[in-house]
Simulated scan of single mutants.
Amino acid sequence: MTENSPLARLAALGLALPPAAAPVANYVPVTRAGHLLFVSGQLPVAAGKVDPAHQGKLGAQVSLEAGQAAARLAALNVLAQANAAVGDLAKLRALRLGGFVNATPDFQQIPQVVNGASDLFATVLGENGKHARAAVGVAQLPLDAAVEIEATFEIIA
């Protein structure tokens, strides 16, 4: 691991890639089409379950800060899936991030929640972490997760 590699940047944040989670329904976690890698939506799962702090609705049970932490953890799981697919995060450039936020109808800080994921991509992947994005409020997510993150990457090496 070189000093400025994505894994070194993760370690500097006190983070490590978790094992890539197996799908829990009829889908695959990653699909590759040519030089594009599509990572299915990932939840803020650690040790096989969603932490209760990352369950519920933003604007009700979940604070902005807890939502951002949930988005960051879900993004870490996206990176784990991408790394499992290509073997090296340095081979990837983020193209698009999709963020889904389990929120009350009046919650207005959906983009700020998804910043938890965007900021992680930018920090870990550096210039290759800059991406287009959608941040969408939804009525419910699987396992009552506060956030779900999906991404599309270009394989560059």
Rank of each mutant, 00 (worst) to 15 (best):
A122G: 11
E127I: 08
A146D: 06
A69K: 13
A66F: 05
V147D: 11
T104K: 06
R32C: 06
L125I: 03
L7N: 14
S5K: 08
P23F: 09
L73E: 13
V124R: 00
Q112G: 00
P111A: 13
L15C: 03
R93N: 11
A21Y: 01
A47S: 13
Q55G: 10
L76N: 14
A69Q: 15
V113T: 08
M1L: 14
H54V: 06
A80I: 07
F100A: 15
S40Q: 13
A146E: 06
A82H: 12
T152Y: 00
G126M: 10
A22L: 12
G116C: 03
L92A: 00
V28C: 04
V147Y: 11
A71M: 06
K57N: 06
G116D: 01
H35T: 13
A117K: 03
V24K: 10
G99I: 04
A157L: 05
A70N: 04
N128S: 13
L58T: 09
F153Q: 05
L89S: 04
A74D: 01
A122D: 08
R96T: 14
A139G: 10
A60F: 14
S63K: 09
P19W: 02
G129V: 01
I149W: 07
A66V: 04
L73P: 04
Q42R: 15
Q42I: 01
G99K: 07
A60Y: 13
Q61L: 14
L125P: 02
A20W: 09
V138E: 03
I155D: 03
E154Y: 02
A20G: 07
I110V: 15
R133S: 15
Q108S: 15
D144C: 02
A85L: 02
A117N: 01
A8V: 01
Q68K: 15
Q61K: 15
L76A: 12
A66R: 15
G98Q: 13
K91M: 02
P44C: 03
F100L: 15
A20P: 12
L43P: 00
V50A: 05
A46N: 00
P6R: 05
A122V: 11
Q112D: 11
A21N: 05
D51A: 14
S118C: 03
V101S: 09
S63D: 04
S63E: 06
A80K: 09
I110M: 10
A80F: 12
F38Q: 07
S5F: 08
E3L: 12
Q55C: 15
G14N: 07
L141V: 11
V62R: 06
A139P: 00
N128L: 03
V28F: 07
Q109T: 08
A82S: 12
A146N: 07
A74Q: 02
L58P: 04
S63C: 08
I156Q: 00
N102T: 09
L7W: 06
L10F: 06
